Simulated scan of single mutants.
Amino acid sequence: MITFKKLMQIIGISILVTSVAHSPAPAVAASGTTQSATAGAPAIQVYLNKEQITSTAGGATLINNTVMLSLDKLYVRGATITYDEHSRMLTIQNLLTQGSMKIGSTHASVNGKQITYSAAFQQVNKQLYIPLRFVNDAIGGSLEWDAVHREAYISYPEFVGEGLTNKNAYFLNGVDGTLYKRDITGKVHTVGASTAKLDPYYIAGTRITAEKISDDADLVTIQYSSGEPSINLTVYNLFVRKGVVLRQSKANYWQFSPEDIKIYEGNAVMNDGHSVRLIAPDGSVKQIWNHSKLAGTPEATYTIEGISGNILIVRSSQDGILTLIDTVAKQAVVLYEEFGIDPTELAGFTYDGIQFTGVSADRSELQFMFTNNKKASGVFTYRLES
């Protein structure tokens, strides 16, 4: 009897696609010999979301002109792989996709659909081998085969977000940008496509948060860091109403962590770094301001740390300086200069130490706190003209 350890690799969780891969790959011949050592031919390489996969038996091989993978300690990030010795059934599954195939058979079940492959799940030289196409389908992937270089590329879903395990929360397929939500009953719903298509290497560190705008509308924020050591930050905002993505924005920052407000007077605040939109609960646009242009530096990106009537309080991601913008008068005021603060006392790069704390009860003044580079604090106010 073949002895084979159960293999379970869980890091993320992955998903759905019910179709088989369509890119041309080697077809099948008739007998059961491996062909990996063809004279002069390069070894077959297989990449899952840009990462090469191997096993203790080596890389992929050809069996009857079909690309096969050894199951010996096969690792697929985000998937669970199990082999039942009693039933001789292999199961590979992700969050929403599952495939099963029995040793000796060319037939498999993927999400309840029967698929026939060009080679059987089989044993060769005391190793178990499975068709690469089945692995692709079972993890909800898309397969491309480069016959000239003997390389196979699988792009497959990788997920991140609290909704993977928590109810009433969102999660994202970072590879293709699809947003999902797990409702209060635990059922998963597809919300829609987003522009958040991320490098798989950095997906695991992505943060997803949501602010409730109304009973049927949320503002979902995706913060994605990349580069070494994760100094490039991209922020995606998705306005979701009745389970559908209606509006999106994207902002890029470098060595800077934005502190954008998300709601103002019941409206969603969507900032792309150069302009800000107020989105009403019904999804309509109430107001648009180009804060980069109003600040006098149209090439610079800014966060939105406060709004009060026609006043925007923005921070430059280039130098961290907090600026007040009167959108009616079209005037920008650098606050540390307005308050007479010595620039040598500013906190440092990307943050000047000035924080917007609120509006006075009669709404005639904006209130700020300044903490200098020696951790000493003081309070400042900005009087609004009536």
Rank of each mutant, 00 (worst) to 15 (best):
T165R: 11
K6G: 03
T106M: 08
D319R: 07
T97D: 12
V135C: 02
T344V: 14
G358E: 06
E162S: 11
S19Q: 15
L172D: 00
S36I: 13
L164N: 01
L233A: 03
G296R: 10
I321W: 02
G78Y: 09
V28I: 08
Q9I: 12
I139C: 01
M369Q: 15
Y153P: 00
Q9V: 09
I2A: 13
D282K: 09
R133F: 00
G348F: 08
G104D: 04
S284L: 10
A204R: 15
A152I: 04
V191H: 06
N64M: 13
L16W: 09
S249K: 11
E259W: 09
V240C: 06
E365T: 12
Q223S: 12
T381D: 01
N136W: 05
T165F: 13
Q318G: 04
I311L: 12
T303H: 06
D72G: 04
S100W: 06
I304N: 01
A193P: 09
H189P: 00
V135L: 13
Q114M: 12
Q45F: 04
A60M: 10
A108F: 12
R363L: 12
I130K: 04
L322Y: 02
L128H: 03
V328N: 08
H291C: 03
I341C: 01
I311A: 07
T106I: 10
V20A: 10
T18F: 09
R182S: 02
Q223E: 15
T106R: 14
G104L: 06
K126S: 09
L294S: 01
A60F: 02
N94G: 15
F4G: 01
G58H: 07
Q122D: 03
K167C: 14
E265M: 11
S105Q: 14
A329E: 13
Y156L: 10
Y156W: 04
Y264A: 02
A196N: 03
A43V: 07
Y302T: 00
G141N: 03
Y153L: 08
I81G: 02
F356G: 00
Y153S: 04
I231G: 04
K242L: 14
K242V: 05
I13H: 06
L294Y: 03
I2H: 14
A204E: 15
L294V: 02
D176I: 13
S275M: 13
T221I: 07
T195F: 11
L312F: 07
M101N: 00
I2E: 14
Y47E: 02
G12A: 10
M369D: 08
A295T: 05
S360M: 10
Q9T: 11
H149N: 14
L322F: 02
G192R: 15
T56A: 14
G140Q: 11
E365Q: 11
I130C: 06
L172G: 00
L246G: 00
S194T: 15
E162K: 15
S275Y: 09
E305R: 11
H189R: 07
E228Y: 15
A21E: 06
V175D: 02
Q127M: 12
F370I: 05
A280Y: 05
H86R: 12
Y201C: 02
L16I: 10
A27N: 09
